[in-house]
Design a protein around this nucleic acid. Structure first.
Lengths: 193, 193
DNA sequence: GTGATTTATTAAAGTACTTTAATTTTTATC
DNA sequence: GATAAAAATTAAAGTACTTTAATAAATCAC
């Protein structure tokens, strides 16, 4: 297993000694997803936290009219999963699938609980991860409230320039909360400027 | 200081012995806000986490056109503050003010850091608080993406029936992301049904 | 309690965004 | 490499929501 990226991710927040590092690594599993494979489906229980080492995932819902709404993207160096389902071990509302062939490192609920007991520093690590995610979400809510679709699109490509290249406009529009048709119109308008 | 509510809030997540409880309480301060008083203004640094024992606060931004957008309300038994500013001790983007005369219990950044050191259980407590807030935000983002204003309004009054009674329609509309005029139209339409 | 200020209501006109549908372009599949 | 499938573009008509403005109702301040 290639654990370089995940250990680096962790070392940005907490320092581990060799024993702790080895113990942590012993709790991990690698998983490969082909494009369009599901990591999680609505109604399932989310049994792992997942760190992406390669590829791209999306977390989304499907509404009553069969429209998809993307709550978040995840790519290299990101953690994904449904926290609520994971913590409560209850069925999730979300779908998570792969937009590209993807490689993830997983830790199960039982192993994470053991990890918290044995290396309490990880409580801090997951708190910090969560804090960052919380802040990002808060900003997104604020932008949804205060910005037009055009402003949100510009904000998105500014914040995630490399990600936008990898996504189809359909995916971007499902994240911004507009139709693909309208995104196409926006892009034309912007390119004429 | 009346610490009954805050200790009860904490005991829902972690168990403290008498010494820990006393130590925690020794780090707290009470503050009173009159209606319209500010707890935090854009550009200030958020220096405390705040637990509401009485009253009601709102966290909001003001956009370029002077419109207010409410990111969250807080009332009895809720924690409020700007986490990003608090953690990084950098200037906040948010305003927090009182919609009613309000009583809060505060803990400063320095005291919270001491608390984490001395009673590490509190790391867990704040992680759990944060998890709940994260999940609530995720649901809100999803609803913003997938629901009409009418559906969001109905969802809001269903989720916070008692809170809606205490708020003006102007505040509710600033939370839903619509104009007060349109909310008034929605309410009329719904009442005719 | 009275006047001043803020909030809510209503209507009419305007705009941002959606829907539908037809065509073109790109990507996936065998 | 040919065919099928999915994504992007464009235009035209429709709808959800905003803006403005005028009036009424509720709340605030002295």
């Amino acid at each position: 297993m290639d654990t370089e990226l995940i250990l680096q991710n962790i070392s940005r927040h907490i320092q581990l000694d060799k024993t702790e590092e080895d113990y942590f690594v012993s709790l991990l599993q690698t998983k490969y997803l082909k494009r369009k494979d599901f990591l999680l489906k609505q109604g399932n229980i989310c049994r792992t936290e997942n760190f992406i080492t390669k590829g791209c995932l999306r977390t989304y819902t499907i509404d009553d009219n069969d429209f998809e709404h993307i709550v978040m993207f995840g790519t290299e160096d990101w953690w994904v999963g449904d926290l609520f389902s994971f913590i409560t071990q209850s069925p999730t509302d979300f779908f998570i699938d792969a937009l590209e062939d993807t490689e993830i490192i997983q830790i199960s609920k039982a192993n994470l609980d053991r990890l918290f007991d044995r290396v309490p520093k990880f409580e801090r690590f997951f708190r910090l991860i969560l804090q960052n995610a919380f802040i990002a979400q808060q900003n997104r809510i604020n932008q949804n409230l205060s910005c037009t679709a055009e402003q949100r699109y510009l904000g998105f490509i500014k914040k995630y320039p490399q990600l936008e290249q990898r996504l189809s406009q359909k995916q971007v529009s499902a994240y911004l909360g507009i139709t693909p048709v309208f995104l196409s119109m926006l892009r034309r308008k912007l390119s004429r400027k």
